[in-house]
Design a protein around this nucleic acid. Sequence first.
DNA 1: CAGTTCCGAAAATGAACAGTTCCGGAATCA
DNA 2: TGATTCCGGAACTGTTCATTTTCGGAACTG
Lengths: 217, 217
Amino acid sequence: MTQPEQVVEPTGTGDEQQGRPGRKRDHSRDPEILEAALDILAECGYDGMTVDMVAARAKAGKATLYRRWPSKAHLVIDAVACMKRAQHQAPPPDTGTLRGDLVAMIRPPGIADGQRKMQVMGGLVSLLAREPELVEAVDEAITEPRVRQNRIVLERARDRGEIRADADLELVAHIGPAMASYRTLVQRRQVDREFLVRIIDEVVLPALGVPPGDPTG
Amino acid sequence: MTQPEQVVEPTGTGDEQQGRPGRKRDHSRDPEILEAALDILAECGYDGMTVDMVAARAKAGKATLYRRWPSKAHLVIDAVACMKRAQHQAPPPDTGTLRGDLVAMIRPPGIADGQRKMQVMGGLVSLLAREPELVEAVDEAITEPRVRQNRIVLERARDRGEIRADADLELVAHIGPAMASYRTLVQRRQVDREFLVRIIDEVVLPALGVPPGDPTG
DNA sequence: CAGTTCCGAAAATGAACAGTTCCGGAATCA
DNA sequence: TGATTCCGGAACTGTTCATTTTCGGAACTG
């Protein structure tokens, strides 16, 4: 567990399908295994997860996992990295108003996705305490993608003159993830559409100086 | 670990000091042990904590812990409950303005205290995933005390007519804890006075309709 | 002082689990 | 078909840790 180091080989590059004559190692099962690892991680946390659980969930042998990853820690790190790669790099919506953009970012798949990401984050919290060098990788995979999108729509709104020019956008871009992680990890309540809209209308927009009875969006 | 159930006997009721002739069990060492447990919990998390660590930190024998608590889980639950009892029930400040109250609630001891409480929370996150019935107890011990104080000053401000009458105070009262837990657990950054003041001025007060260039406070 | 009680230290016990190794079968190769 | 490779399943090894016991000594009792 000491310094698992970043696993280098990327996964799911898209050029494999099944048993290929390659002489190296067959990575065709990686996606299922990494998904299984994320599932277990979200359910049980890093310490509660066992390699047997992951193997069973992926219908693979434990030996298969160890043929591919040198340790449980490496597997988890790769799974988190995979999460980042899987990020749909879709640009944020551009509806013309900030509220429109923010609300449009709430889509059913995004909610379920975000819920799981938060639970994975919860499963990693105790690990992060022991391995601070993982903080950046986890942040990059889980919260940054969302924050980046928030930044984009916020900056656009600022450039349009829709919001206070001196607002602390960096702080505001983190409000959503912060409230969502708090609700998921601490309060253990559902993050649903109603909650997210309330955050937008009651916290984010007011922080930007947008009047409550929104004329736009 | 299954259903540890609430430990009943309260600790540190104040009527013991050292080796008393009592016929039952001597609880005089409880406070040191529970504090040690909280320290380790904050540092290592529930799964990373071992009973030996707690015993060593408290300069007690492991057997002593097992004479007093039936299991590691019971010890931790009692430690969390103890945290709640230790809450200084000091009423929130009443400076006459909302901002004054909120800023006055930031005191050096309170910051360090809050930091540790958040780290204890982090150490419990993975446990909460496995034992949902603990969520309420943990919440009650860690976040509720702060939220309750927030509620009081917010309601006072509303009654003074200082803020929007229709603001969602329940939501706003959770902004501080949410941002603090996010910063501590996810971002692993310091929660310092500057950060807390920024939350108040950039997020909380705007959400309540208080103009940015605060005339009060 | 002899008896009693409690405690800390340390050794013992047993289960869970990371990491290894083996094995038989299926798919691929030649 | 026979050789080769990979895989899943299962048994094995070594370590860590919760929990239990044991033991010798300190403090208190009478």
